[in-house]
C-alpha cells in the first residue's frame, strides 16, 4: 500500500462510541454542568461547591471515607504482602489454584459479606455471644455498625485485591532472587534491601493507590452494613441523588464531581510518579 487511505473501518466503531457517549461521556458532562447550576434558578453558580466545602457534614464524609480507605489499604497491603510472600513458597500447582479462589474471595463483597460479618460480629453475633459466654471482654468496645466495623469488613476484600496485584510481581523477583542468591551467596537481608524491595516498591505503591481508590468507591458493603449510619461520601451521594425525602440531586452531583476529580488526580499523579520510578530503576 502506498498511502494510508481514510480508514473506513472506523465506521464499525460507531456503536461502541455511541454507547460510550450515551452512558458515560454525556452523563458525566451533565453531572459536571449540573454541579454548576443553581438549585433554585437554574443559572450558573459556584454556590453548590461553596455549600459542599463549608458544610462540615459533607467534608466529614470525605474525611471518614479517606480514613477508612487509608486504614483498610495500609493494613490490607501489609497483610497482602505477607500472604503473597508465603504463597510464593508453596508448590507451583497450589499457587495456581489459590489465585482462582482468591479471586472468588475478592468477589465476596457487598451484601453477602456484610451479612456474614453481622452473623459473626453483629449485636447478637455468634462470635460475640460466644465470647460473652466465656466472659472475654474482647469485643465489648467494638461496634460493627460503626467505622471500626467497616474497616474490618473492608479488609476482607482489600487483602485479596492486594494479593492479586502483589503476588505476580513478587513471584517474578523470587525467581531472580534464587539465581542471585546462588550466584553471589548474598544473604537474604542484603538482597531484600538492595534489590528485592527497590524492585517491588513501584508495584507496592501502585497497589496501594488502587486499594485506596477501591476503598473510597465502595458503596454496597457499607450500605448493607450500616445503612446510612456512617457518613461516607458514596453513601451521602447515593442518598442525595436517589433518596426520596432528602433528594438533592444537584448537591449529589457536586459531591460526585469532587469525588471523581480527587480520584482522577490521585490516580494520575501516582501513575506519573510510578512511571518515573520505573524509568529510574531501569
Amino acid at each position: 500500500m502506498k498511502r494510508i487511505q481514510w480508514n473506513r473501518k472506523i465506521l464499525l466503531l460507531i456503536p461502541f462510541f455511541l454507547i460510550a457517549a450515551m452512558f458515560l461521556i454525556i452523563p458525566m458532562v451533565m453531572m459536571v454542568t449540573s454541579s454548576f447550576t443553581s438549585e433554585a434558578t437554574g443559572a450558573f453558580t459556584l454556590d453548590n461547591y461553596k455549600e459542599v466545602l463549608t458544610n462540615p457534614f459533607y467534608t466529614q464524609a470525605f474525611m471518614n471515607s479517606g480514613l477508612i480507605s487509608i486504614f483498610s489499604s495500609v493494613t490490607g497491603l501489609v497483610l497482602a504482602i505477607l500472604v503473597s510472600y508465603a504463597m510464593t513458597n508453596l508448590p507451583d500447582k497450589v499457587q495456581d489454584k489459590l489465585t482462582v479462589y482468591i479471586n472468588v474471595a475478592a468477589n465476596f463483597a457487598g451484601v453477602p459479606l456484610a451479612f456474614a460479618f453481622i452473623i459473626l460480629l453483629g449485636n447478637s453475633g455468634v462470635f460475640r455471644l460466644f465470647l460473652d459466654n466465656l466472659e472475654w471482654p474482647l469485643l465489648n468496645n467494638f461496634d460493627l455498625y460503626s467505622w471500626q466495623g467497616l474497616a474490618i469488613t473492608y479488609l476482607y476484600f482489600q487483602i485479596p485485591l492486594g494479593i492479586l496485584f502483589i503476588y505476580p510481581s513478587l513471584k517474578k523477583i523470587r525467581k531472580e532472587w534464587k539465581e542471585a542468591a546462588f550466584m553471589l551467596g548474598a544473604t537474604n537481608w542484603i538482597y531484600w534491601r538492595k534489590v528485592g524491595l527497590p524492585s517491588i516498591m513501584p508495584s507496592i505503591a501502585g497497589t496501594f493507590v488502587i486499594m485506596f481508590a477501591n476503598g473510597m468507591g465502595t458503596y454496597e458493603t457499607a450500605y448493607a452494613l450500616t445503612g446510612s449510619n456512617v457518613n461516607l461520601v458514596t453513601i451521602r451521594i447515593a442518598a442525595l441523588v436517589s433518596g426520596d425525602i432528602y433528594a438533592r440531586p444537584i448537591i449529589g452531583s457536586t459531591l460526585a464531581v469532587l469525588f471523581a476529580v480527587i480520584m482522577i488526580v490521585i490516580l494520575f499523579v501516582s501513575q506519573m510518579l510510578l512511571k518515573r520510578v520505573r524509568r529510574d530503576l531501569a
Binding site: P27, M30, A238, A260
Partner: peptide, 15 residues
C-alpha cells in the same frame, strides 16, 4: 476507580 458505580449512577440519573 475514578468513576465507581455510585458516581456513574449519579451521572446516569442526572441525564
Amino acid at each position: 476507580y475514578a468513576i465507581p458505580g455510585v458516581i456513574l449512577a449519579t451521572g446516569l440519573l442526572r441525564m
